[in-house]
Simulated scan of single mutants.
Amino acid sequence: MSGCKHVATVRSVEPRTLGCEECLEDGEEWVHLRLCRECGHVGCCDQSIGKHATAHFHATGHPIIEGYDPPEGWGWCYLDEIMVELPDQTPQRGPIPRYY
């Protein structure tokens, strides 16, 4: 789990919502959640219809996400396409709705 040059962008963040931001706005369902470790955006995984976590990466360039539903502790770099070690695990800030 080494070789990622982008781990320097990882921050301790506060999740902005209790589920996928865009799915909550649109009344959509998700499968799993991903947390942007640069800004705290919560988006749905690529198995979900919206693929909002990946869309957030393409819109912002924020490369590192954390598995988040409940917090899983693993990280992924979109740019290097590899798992990354995170310096900490983001605590869940409230009950996350289940949609699958």
Rank of each mutant, 00 (worst) to 15 (best):
M1K: 12
W74S: 08
W30D: 09
C4E: 11
V10K: 03
E21F: 06
A8I: 08
R11W: 01
L79I: 15
A8M: 03
A59K: 15
Y68I: 06
Q47S: 13
P63I: 01
Y99M: 13
T60K: 10
V7M: 10
P63S: 01
P87V: 04
P87G: 13
Y78W: 15
A8N: 11
M83N: 10
R98I: 11
C77L: 09
P15K: 00
L18H: 00
E85T: 14
G19E: 00
Y78E: 12
I49R: 15
W74P: 03
I96S: 05
G19A: 00
L79Y: 02
I64A: 09
P91L: 07
T60D: 08
R93T: 14
G73E: 00
E38L: 04
P63T: 02
H62N: 10
H6D: 11
V31K: 04
W74H: 13
T90W: 06
Q47W: 10
G73L: 05
G40V: 12
S12W: 08
G27P: 11
E21S: 13
Q92L: 06
C39A: 05
T90F: 03
E66K: 06
C44N: 09
G75W: 06
E22D: 15
Y78R: 04
H62C: 09
G3F: 09
G27Q: 12
Q89L: 02
R98Q: 14
A59P: 02
H6I: 04
I65G: 02
R16G: 01
E38R: 12
D69A: 07
G67W: 05
Q92G: 14
D88Q: 13
E25P: 00
L18P: 01
C23F: 07
H41A: 03
E81V: 06
C45P: 04
M83P: 03
G73R: 03
P70F: 05
R98N: 12
T54W: 01
E29K: 14
E38H: 07
D46M: 09
L86F: 10
G94V: 05
C23M: 11
I64P: 14
H58D: 06
H32R: 08
R11E: 14
V10M: 02
E66Q: 14
R16E: 01
E66D: 07
D88A: 11
E66T: 08
M83F: 10
C77A: 04
G75R: 05
P87C: 05
H52G: 02
P91F: 03
E81M: 11
L79P: 11
G43P: 07
A8V: 14
E14Q: 05
E38G: 00
C4M: 07
C4S: 14
A55Y: 03
E14M: 00
K51S: 02
S2C: 04
E28W: 15
P87S: 03
G73S: 05
H52L: 09
T60H: 10
H41C: 04
E22H: 08
V7K: 12
G27H: 12
S48I: 08
E25N: 11
P70A: 02
V7Q: 10
S48L: 08
D46T: 12
H62V: 10
I49H: 12
I65T: 15
K51L: 00
R93E: 05
E21I: 02
D88T: 07
R16W: 01
E22I: 15
Q89E: 09
D26C: 07
S48N: 08
